[in-house]
Amino acid sequence: MITHLLSMEDLDAEQIGHILDTAEGFRDIALRPVKKVPTLRGRTVCNLFYEDSTRTRTSFELAAKRLSADTLNFSAKGSSVSKGESLKDTAQTLEAMGVDAIVIRHEQSGAAQTLTRFVQARVLNAGDGWHQHPTQALLDLFTVREHVGRLAGLNVAVVGDVLHSRVARSVVQGFATMGANVTVCGPPTLVPASAPSWGCEVTYDLDGLLARTDVLYLLRVQRERMTEQFFPSSREYARIWGVGRDRLARLPDEAVVLHPGPMNRGVEVTAEVADAPNALITAQVTNGIAVRMSCLYLMLGGEQAAPAEPVTQATTAEEVAAR
């Protein structure tokens, strides 16, 4: 079904729905005493991380291991990359070792797509620069669908540093593709003027938005943006676009709050919000593993696990595992 997973732009509603449905089967594996299926036995998945990211790398590693794939972790620090090896050479070295899929995290936008030019292996984008982080959006869609029961028609507010956020691009496109009404909000310095072309609306007025928000998605705001004059101080940012107890109270009762982590408590979010009952932040982390299992399975599992049937026929991993 999926050759490479590079961007939410590449997925239509049917494909997203299929990934989420498949993930539901995998979610329940985590509840078993033996949290493992043999689906990807004999396949090798490489986590190629040019940026530090403990949570994403760990999530992918667990996802691959629960599918019985062999995993190897390759981080730029302390490796041949720190000795000046190019992405092309690194990629071709990994391919020569026979990896079937490369999960890449890179600080440069487009690095995952560039990687596809160098290797035959499947490429899964685990975050590239400011560009895309598709599995983050998929796990967010999964989490909201699980808690709210639907995606179409929801009012989603994505708040914060949209300009520098790969999460924002993936999340806005993902929710819009699934039929939600998306509004992005933040200081004008951090919202691209062309954001409406992503299928969303733009406002700078968070308070005007809260009462009609079903899903409040808070983006990480890095403190270094302050020194680059995108806003004057984290205190002022928190006052105008941060969410604390008061703003949380103005959300509708059923509204949920998401954050991709890691949080800057005191800037975009306060401790009360992060720990509120309607904050789904730990559920996002839990679901991340199932969603990444789903993506790896759909990219790698189909041909080998069920050669007689197209993978799109297998609705859940349970069925596949049962065969």
């Binding site: 732009e9 936008s109 487009g110 590239d128 620069g129 400011w130 560009h131 895309q132 300009l163 790969r166 691009r169 691209p192 003027a193 062309s194 954001a195 072309s197 992503w198």
Partner: peptide, 11 residues
């Protein structure tokens, strides 16, 4: 700077 760069996440 414009729609294409913003979509692609390019400075």
């Amino acid at each position: 700077e414009g729609g294409v760069a913003a979509r692609l996440g390019l400075p």
